[in-house]
Design a protein around this nucleic acid. Structure first.
Length: 274
DNA sequence: GGTCGTGAATTAACGGAGGG
DNA sequence: CCCTCCGTTAATTCACGACC
């Protein structure tokens, strides 16, 4: 391990040999997906308020802060703009606060996705056009500065994150930023007892991803927005205030109206009966 | 049932930045 | 200047599905 590497000539030579073949990426990208980063944001918010030591956060994940696994996860959360890391302290950012709030989560997911320099470049390059297949996409990533040996990992994390952020709502070969801004506005209006319209926006609705023939499968078969919604469900034993349940249910209703076309003649409003 | 391929997770190590 | 922290890369291990 590390203490065995700081002496002996042969070890030093090995280190030099290894470093010669090492290519350092010139553009930032995460090795973990968006969902993993949101998990860290949720831990920070639900367990610690908004700030904790990396030891504490790692402990919640059953890992130690010094492990590469945890550092990769934390690094990803930082690239997505959900946390700031400084001298062993991890703090939730404003975007992180929004992503743990079901009423602003969808827009925050899209924003987090585009916070990653590599993903932003890919989005700009292929906006409204067909995405190349795996090999082509990896080459595109390499041309943007990703280490050639890391392009497969970069592509895999990219695809998972794009799905989780709702960018694959038109299929995995098209990267389309979800129109979730109006969804959050709609949610706020609904909470304010304003129930008019919500219908004229149907032309810019994100169409549901085509349901495959194996549609009876697991959560990954669901629309990314629904997947995201389910991820925010607290565990069965935890405290879940009624007001937050209402917020969650209202968000669910809004998502359903977004992804399942209807005639728009009515809308669902969730209220608390006291 | 065995094998093969692929993707995900984990571990080990390198190198830069910054603090003391 | 040394040490620690942090981000990154490479290699290895594990899990799982497809195919024969």
């Amino acid at each position: 391990m590390s203490d065995a590497s700081d002496h002996s000539v042969s070890t030093k030579l090995e280190k030099e040999d290894v470093s010669q073949g090492r290519f350092r990426s010139t553009i930032e990208f995460p090795y973990n997906d968006l969902e993993t980063s949101i998990q860290i944001a949720n831990i920070l918010f639900n367990r610690f308020g908004s700030k904790a030591s990396s030891d504490q956060v790692a402990g919640q994940l059953g890992q130690v802060a010094s492990s590469g696994t945890f550092r990769l996860k934390l690094s990803a959360a930082r690239m997505f703009g959900l946390v700031e890391v400084q001298r062993g302290e991890v703090e939730l950012t404003q975007l992180g606060q929004r992503i743990v709030d079901p009423s602003t989560e969808l827009a925050a997911r899209a924003e987090a996705f585009l916070s990653v320099p590599l993903y932003r470049e890919i989005h700009e390059r292929y906006q409204g056009r067909l995405l190349p297949e795996a090999g082509g996409l990896e080459n595109a990533m390499a041309s943007l500065g990703v280490s050639p040996k890391q392009k497969d990992k970069a592509r895999q994390a990219f695809e998972r994150s794009a799905l989780q952020a709702g960018f694959f709502a038109h299929g995995k070969n098209k990267l389309v930023r979800p129109h979730v801004q109006h969804l959050n506005e709609l949610n706020e209006r609904t909470v304010r007892d304003d129930e008019e319209e919500a219908t004229s926006e149907s032309d810019e609705l994100v169409q549901p991803a085509p349901v495959s023939s194996k549609a009876s499968g697991g959560i990954e078969q669901l629309h990314p927005f629904v997947q995201g919604l389910l991820q925010t469900l607290p565990s069965p034993e935890s405290q879940w205030p009624l007001e937050k349940r209402v917020k969650w249910l209202q968000t669910a209703a809004n998502i359903f109206s977004l992804i399942y076309p209807d005639d728009g003649s009515a809308s669902i409003r969730v209220t608390l009966d006291e």
